[in-house]
Write a protein that binds this DNA or RNA. Structure first.
Length: 263
DNA sequence: AATGTGATCAACCGCCCCCAT
DNA sequence: GATGGGGGCGGTTGATCACAT
């Protein structure tokens, strides 16, 4: 006996959301909050399933979302958390305010998983997967397509991994993290986060910016009752004004004045 | 310029968990 | 304790984009 579907799917729209739909959902939630996702599409005038609305809000429309490239520190943190928590993406996402579980899951599946495989580590268990010969041949295959700098770093990582006495998972993780940090400090990679992050502060009518600390103070801070949403604490202390904004308690009411032009 | 291939990511599906009754 | 409903979660798909040939 299967469960009843969450909603009557007949006549419901599927696929990519239009700007008009986004605006409807955004305006509805900002003005009314979320009591019951099942009722949201009906009340907002959307021909969508409640779950679809929830997903769209969480993964795309939430004002505190942090879009843009992943930093090395974030990637390291994901690897570390995944080794402890496994595929519990929502738990992992809780450590990254502004990032969604879907985003983390996608990044893991498309980037980090490959990175670990090339290092001879099983992305599932974070333990070595193959005989050393196989690890090397795989790595060589990868190295053929890598830049010289990447090759040097990866060879060092691989050597350290292979040379470890007992391939203990913890040790491998430490090696990996250490190497990744070393790679960062040598300037072989750079984050494009600063270039891509949106200037959210400019969206507010009454904000003050403090360049010396990078913090943003929102003057219009009314009690938060329209939307009940918890912004978690961040384990990674990034020197980033946008991150500071993310970490601060959000007076959500300020978004309601943004209207149709918010996006 | 056209086509093929791989990467990325938004969105869906179905199951599970929690809570109210 | 059993049941049903809603929300949340993880796996997967498919459209789109970027790059290579």
């Amino acid at each position: 006996m299967g469960r009843q579907p969450c909603c009557d799917k007949v006549g419901l729209k599927r696929g990519p959301w239009t700007i008009e739909e986004d605006n409807k959902l955004m305006n509805f939630i900002l003005n009314n909050g979320i009591q019951c996702w099942r009722l949201v599409p009906k009340l907002a005038g959307l021909m969508r399933c409640g779950k679809s609305c929830r997903l769209r809000w969480i993964n795309y429309l939430r004002p505190d979302l942090k879009r843009g490239a992943w930093t090395e520190a974030e990637e390291d943190m994901i690897i570390e958390l995944h080794s402890r928590l496994g595929n519990r993406w929502s738990k992992i996402a809780a450590h990254f305010p502004g990032r969604t579980d879907n985003e983390i899951k996608n990044h893991w599946n498309t980037k980090i998983k490959k990175k670990l495989k090339f290092l001879g580590l099983d992305p599932l268990t974070h333990k070595p997967i193959d005989q050393p010969e196989n690890c090397v041949s795989k790595s060589e295959e990868f190295l053929d397509n890598s830049s010289l700098g990447e090759q040097e770093v990866l060879m060092l990582e691989l050597q350290e991994t292979l040379q470890s006495e007992d391939f203990q998972t913890q040790q491998n993780k430490k090696n990996l993290n250490t190497n990744l940090h070393e790679q960062r400090s040598t300037g072989t990679s750079s984050s494009s986060l600063d270039e891509e992050k949106p200037n959210l502060a400019s969206m507010f009518n009454e904000t003050r910016e403090f360049p010396e600390t990078g913090s943003i103070e929102i003057q219009n801070s009314e009690p938060l009752d329209a939307i009940s949403y918890i912004v978690g604490t961040n384990d990674i202390q990034l020197e980033d004004p946008f991150q500071n904004w993310i970490d601060s308690p959000l007076p959500w009411d300020v978004f309601s004045s943004l209207g149709e032009n918010f996006l």
